[in-house]
């Protein structure tokens, strides 16, 4: 984790995880998306030139987090997009409305580090902790 990051990539024997801490539920989910982008594309600079809306419904906060991150994986994979940021408009325990922004993958400027098969439910969490929020997922690579 660099001082500017609210997320950290975590070790796993075969794959990788992402964890984040932030002051609010919105921010912690936004940080998780930043972590996901770094996990897939490394730290190449990305502009927010294209945006799309993301709408997720789930039965609980963990499913909401995993589904939101998988929406970003899908958007990135299908559109050959590099995500720059997620901005949440509204979030509760079962519903999330957000905008993801980024730009088309350009091999001259971006590097592709890893292919994500999916964000998993294994030890996934989205919890309120003293002073803020904590989230964690493991990603199948």
């Amino acid at each position: 984790m660099t001082p500017a990051d609210g997320f950290r990539l975590i070790e796993h024997t075969a794959d990788m995880g992402i964890e984040a801490r932030a002051a609010s539920r919105e921010e912690v989910v936004e940080e998780m998306v930043r972590g996901l982008a770094v996990l897939i594309f490394g730290r190449s600079p990305v502009a927010s030139r294209v945006t799309t809306k993301i709408e997720v419904r789930a039965e609980d906060p963990v499913e909401l987090l995993v589904s939101c991150l998988n929406e970003v994986v899908y958007w990135s994979e299908q559109g050959h997009m590099v995500p720059a940021a997620l901005r949440i408009q509204s979030i509760n325990d079962g519903e999330l409305l957000a905008t993801v922004s980024g730009e088309p993958f350009d091999p001259e400027r971006h590097s592709m580090e890893r292919e994500v098969k999916s964000v998993t439910y294994h030890q996934a969490c989205l919890d309120e902790i003293p002073g803020g929020w904590y989230a964690r997922v493991y990603v199948d690579l």
């Binding site: 039965e59 963990v62 499913e63 589904s67 998993t120 439910y121 294994h122 030890q123 996934a124």
Partner: peptide, 21 residues
């Protein structure tokens, strides 16, 4: 996995890890 998370609840299956749904 989403369908099975609901199914596990519906059929009363206790999961030690959601990924085993």
């Amino acid at each position: 996995l989403k369908i099975m998370l609901r199914a596990a609840r519906k059929y009363g299956i206790t999961l030690p890890d959601r990924q085993l749904c």
